[in-house]
Design a protein around this nucleic acid. Structure first.
Lengths: 159, 159
DNA sequence: AAAATACGTCAGCAATGTTGACTTATATTG
DNA sequence: CAATATAAGTCAACATTGCTGACGTATTTT
């Protein structure tokens, strides 16, 4: 599982740059689509994680996104007002508001994810199954331990 | 080199999330260090690529970063004024200004890159050489074709 | 001499993050 | 039941980092 091999500084710098350019190009396409709706990347993240965690609470979303509630409120408020997200009082704890995508929200989420999915699928197809495993492995090792549980498992974060 | 295998939507979404969380956590540490200097991520990128391409011109830098000269000027101006970057008139074409890190700039660049390099090295060590190859392969496939030549080779972009 | 290029600057705007303070419901706890 | 904690919302101010548009100046190319 672990090797003692150390990469040269040049190899390391190449990897740093790869990550920078790849991330920029990767997000670029979805950004263009979002502009058509007057939204930005922050809206994208909210839509994505609400779809991924239906009925999530506001606090739950904050814990995933790691931004302040004031920041979230700006974009979330827009999404609710414009009918992309449905917000209702949780019957078990009436202090909470559960967040769920509307049909309109689901459609936008689908378009956005398809947009990024296509590029990633193409990169995966061109790289091979083995490379994909390595890609995922390295990324998961780069994530903070506390968050590693958050990305996967599909276990909804409704709290 | 290429497979026809298509990942499930769940696999794809996991990869999307991995990239999001990994990138955020990856940049987080350097951001903290930058704060001590009153700098942001934009300054980091300028310092990084000036170090990587000594004597690069302003236009050359703009082509790598893909931002406007007005955006660059804000951060570049700060870095020059505060003595992290040395700017001098190119003797071959006196319209151009060549950008190079000062000793102070080199030291900061070194600290910043070490900061990110350590995390990446650890992820690499925990993932194994084979995974690292896959990681790089997939990232390079995700980069826009026009930029793919820019990340590597170490060929300075002095123009 | 005219046009193109490289650089810089001023002004204003937008997206998205931050802090701090305060209010209203609702739930939990002593 | 009263006190406290939690969930959510809101108002205001500010910082960073993108953007556009409009100029000005020096230098090189045509």
């Amino acid at each position: 599982m672990s090797t003692d091999q150390t990469l040269s500084e040049e190899d390391l710098r190449q990897a740093l740059e790869l990550l920078f350019f790849a991330y920029r190009d990767f997000t670029g396409e979805a950004d263009t689509l979002l502009e058509d709706f007057g939204f930005g990347r922050a809206h994208h993240r909210v839509i994505y994680f609400v779809n991924r965690n239906p009925s999530i609470s506001v606090n739950g979303l904050l814990r995933i996104l790691k931004i302040t509630k004031q920041s979230l409120s700006r974009v979330l408020g827009q999404l609710v007002r414009e009918g992309f997200i449905d917000q209702k009082t949780d019957s078990h704890d009436r202090r909470r508001r559960t967040l769920t995508l509307t049909d309109k929200g689901i459609e936008l989420e689908s378009r956005l994810t398809k947009c990024q999915g296509v590029r990633m699928q193409q990169a995966f197809a061109a790289s091979g199954e083995n490379a994909v495993q390595g890609f995922k492995k390295v990324l998961s090792e780069m994530i903070n331990a506390e968050d590693r549980k958050r990305y996967t498992g599909g276990a909804p974060h409704t709290d």
